[in-house]
Design a protein around this nucleic acid. Structure first.
Length: 421
DNA sequence: TGACGTCAAGATCCG
DNA sequence: CGGATCTTGACGTCA
């Protein structure tokens, strides 16, 4: 079983993608952006290796206008050595990669031009996979598309257009149930007619269930049969509802308890799990740690080093509780560990605990800081106290000092995740 | 015509 | 002038 995340890293400095708008998309600009994005991709791969993350979805934004005539660069060739080096890392570390064109890539549209662009977009995605690792286990995930007032006809059109795709694309293409239109049952029907494996999105199935509310473990088994040996371990998508947003919106983080309790549905079945969640890699590491049968206290200590000031900002009590928990040198209390952290992060920080955390962080920096940096900190802190500047403004100032003085403990701290880019 | 979702670029405002 | 904040882009479907 592998657990992975989608597209970007949270809390790791300097890993943001670049893009450009169409009117500025000169070949030179595009080449610079791609060069930057490939460097970022390489850092993501390294992060995955460091954290034993074996499943990874790459952003479609990797190559700007990758499926548009705007971009005529031969980026496979121009960046061949970078592709090759990254591909080597991916294969050597048994990392499974994927891509997921968004809601605007519609293969079953009645409009010819839309279908044509969808095929071009699939072509782009397969080119990226082929640059890195063309194993059939690496997948491109696609939704079925619209219904257009006649779902049967729309499904037929999907099947028909699927059959016209190149073998290069078919080798990687898998299909997914969505939250509004196509339910698992219908996607399985299309799978039977096309041979495309089905990735079960368990959250979409909750939001957009079968009329007779068939239990999820039935669909798990049905979807599993659509995967051939060459396709690798069956994949599922797992996410949770954001309680503050519209039904269907993904949560900030994966709840440790809900995840573990959902995992009981698998009852030993081997699947790879892609998490769709705002905090990306952070939830992937969390879920991996929660299910690790050989988990070590040392891992939690490393996690704590990154979370501690963020937790302190929200709650001194939670901070003390985790410290207490980590004092015990035996056992592996991962579930309690994340319970305390996640609970504390749910509430908005109050001003006094936020100031307390700022002062703790400042403690790492004040020896290196110059006099005017001291002054600036005192000024911003006072403004924040009086409500005339935001917490993030103060944190941004501290983050600049962290980078300037390369403070090793703080540079990896999630305390700065909102202000580091 | 706006909502949906996604993220940064681009534009504009502010001190 | 630099930093903070608001708006736009790029895509297709559906109410």
């Amino acid at each position: 079983m592998k657990i992975g995340y989608a597209c970007l890293l949270v809390g790791v400095a300097g890993t943001g993608f670049k893009t450009c708008i169409k009117k500025n998309a000169t070949q030179e600009k595009l080449q610079n952006v791609i060069d930057h994005n490939l460097r970022v991709l390489d850092r993501m791969i390294d992060y995955n290796i460091d954290h034993d993350i074996g499943l990874f979805r790459m952003s479609s934004d990797l190559i700007p206008f990758g499926s548009s005539p705007v971009n005529t660069l031969k980026w496979e060739e121009i960046f061949s050595s970078q592709w090759e080096a990254m591909g080597k890392k991916i294969k050597e570390n048994n990392m499974r990669i994927s891509m997921h064109p968004g809601q605007y890539t519609v293969l079953n549209s009645p409009r010819k031009e839309v279908v044509k662009r969808a095929v071009a977009d699939l072509e782009y995605h397969v080119r990226v996979l082929e640059c890195l690792d063309s194993s059939q286990k690496n997948k491109i995930i696609l939704h079925i598309g619209g219904a257009y007032g006649d779902k049967r006809a729309a499904m037929d059109r999907f099947v028909e257009n699927y059959r016209r795709l190149s073998d290069r694309i078919k080798k990687h293409l898998i299909i997914e149930n969505d939250d509004k239109i196509y339910r698992v049952k219908e996607v399985l029907d299309i799978s039977e007619r096309t041979g495309a494996p089905v990735v079960l999105d368990v959250f979409h199935d909750k939001i957009n269930p079968d009329p007779d509310h068939t239990p999820v473990d039935y669909w798990l088994r049905q979807c599993q049969t659509t995967w051939k040996k060459e396709d690798g371990t069956p994949k599922i998508h797992y996410s949770e509802q954001n309680p503050l947003k519209q039904p269907g919106s993904h949560s900030e983080t994966i709840g440790g308890d809900s995840f573990l309790s959902w995992m009981e549905n698998l009852r030993g079945m081997d699947v790879d799990i892609m998490l769709e969640v705002k905090d990306k890699n952070l939830s992937a590491v969390k879920c991996l740690n929660l299910v690790d049968p050989r988990g070590k206290m040392k891992t939690l200590e490393q996690e704590w080093a990154r979370y501690k000031y963020l937790v302190l900002e929200h709650s001194q009590r939670a901070y003390d509780q985790v410290r207490e928990l980590l004092k015990k040198k035996s056992g592996y209390p991962a579930q309690s560990f994340y319970q305390i952290i996640d609970q504390s992060l749910k509430s908005e920080p109050d001003k006094s605990s936020a100031v307390n955390a700022l002062d703790h962080v400042w403690g790492h920096l004040k020896k290196s800081a110059e006099e005017r940096e001291h002054q600036r900190y005192r000024l911003l802190l006072e403004r924040y106290r009086q409500g005339t500047c935001s917490l993030n403004t103060v944190k941004k100032h501290l983050w600049k000092l962290v980078v300037k003085y390369q403070e090793p403990y703080l540079i990896q701290s999630l305390y700065f995740k909102e202000v580091m880019d």
